[in-house]
Simulated scan of single mutants.
Amino acid sequence: MSNETEGTDRATRVAALRPAYRSDLAGGVDRFFAPRRDTCPWCDSGRLTTRLRTTDLLQHKPGRFLLDRCEACGHTFQNPALNEAGLEFYYRDFYDGLGEQKMGGTFQGRTKMYRGRAESMLPHDPTPKNWLDVGTGHGHFCAAAREVLPGTAFDGLDFTDGVEIAAREGRVEHAHRGLFPDLAPDLAARYDVVSMFHYLEHSTDPDRELRAAHQAVRPGGHLLIEVPDPESRYARLLGRWWLPWLQPQHLHFVPVANLRRRLTELGFTVVAEQHAEPHDPVDLLAAVWLALDHTAPREDAPWLAEPPGALSRALRTATLLAGVPALALATLVDRFAARPLSHRLGLSNAYRLVARRD
């Protein structure tokens, strides 16, 4: 399909979606938020400070979002958090709908990263019989991991129809659609490995997800978790332009010490902690892109009242083209300067834990 045809098709889809978004936004965005918390959802302390104020820097849907930090335990969380209606509104057309093709291409092109995640299990269980990937999306991790572990049966779990697509495409053997805590009793002690790659931060209740994982992992099996690291130096240096904040989708940011302690309380033994390996060297590139995209006039989207005119489109193109040198420089620094030193300098943007169920 040519770029012109793709553009025409997208414009048609945007126009068709605009009335529904206009109706959703008629009463403002306050209805998308739960009441504000006065205590930390992790340790129940009342010592909260505001860590970040930002907007939706990826889709540019309306709304302002706050992240609070607990001074007692270090947990960072969205406050007020999105309610069920808010989660539906802000997720819509990101991973599916308008965003499905773009995000599918992004995930499909990360095979090396997926293989690295699978390889992190080899020292602890080189031949797991079965593996459940929670929050699997379209199952791209499972497809890549099968190359590392050809004898392992990979199942996927997600609450979107992406997991059913994964099954149809043969990336997972069994698709479990729904919320993990709801499905966990039927999956009790079934899996040698359960993985949660950049899943826990999306959850409304991380502790409930961890308890579900303890149910699904057989005794002696392993839980593999990878999440953004809120203690990364980049989180402070880049502020709202740090991509892993990913507002408003990311609801909780758990410091590694907190997660280790909670896993131990649940009956796991943490057998590996990694920071350098899960680091994704895109922080500066993403920050430059987010700033450029924020500065430029908006691309047409159904949540905008009207499509942008010709002048607005031309200014957007000119702004993004002017930023190409900065994007190229940021890419070079990310990959060749910052990446080799990321853990030593405290820049790693994620951490990974492997825990064995006792």
Rank of each mutant, 00 (worst) to 15 (best):
355 A>H: 00
108 Q>S: 15
54 T>N: 06
288 V>M: 10
7 G>S: 15
245 W>S: 05
247 Q>K: 15
238 L>P: 00
111 T>H: 14
216 A>P: 00
120 S>M: 07
167 A>D: 07
184 A>W: 01
347 L>Y: 02
33 F>C: 04
26 A>W: 06
194 V>K: 10
82 L>C: 08
13 R>F: 02
157 L>K: 05
28 G>N: 03
154 F>C: 11
159 F>Q: 07
110 R>W: 13
169 E>M: 09
161 D>G: 13
339 R>V: 01
210 L>A: 06
263 L>Q: 00
4 E>Q: 14
273 E>L: 15
195 S>H: 04
164 E>I: 12
201 E>V: 08
190 R>T: 03
267 G>N: 10
213 A>E: 00
211 R>P: 09
147 E>A: 13
108 Q>K: 14
301 A>R: 01
184 A>K: 03
133 D>C: 07
44 D>E: 04
248 P>C: 13
308 P>H: 08
206 P>V: 07
56 D>W: 01
342 S>K: 04
122 L>R: 11
159 F>N: 09
299 E>D: 13
291 A>M: 02
75 H>K: 07
12 T>R: 14
1 M>H: 12
249 Q>H: 14
299 E>T: 14
42 W>M: 14
218 R>M: 05
299 E>G: 12
132 L>F: 01
314 A>C: 02
149 L>D: 05
245 W>M: 07
272 A>K: 05
123 P>D: 02
122 L>G: 12
6 E>Q: 10
69 R>P: 01
184 A>C: 00
310 A>Y: 11
208 R>L: 15
354 V>N: 02
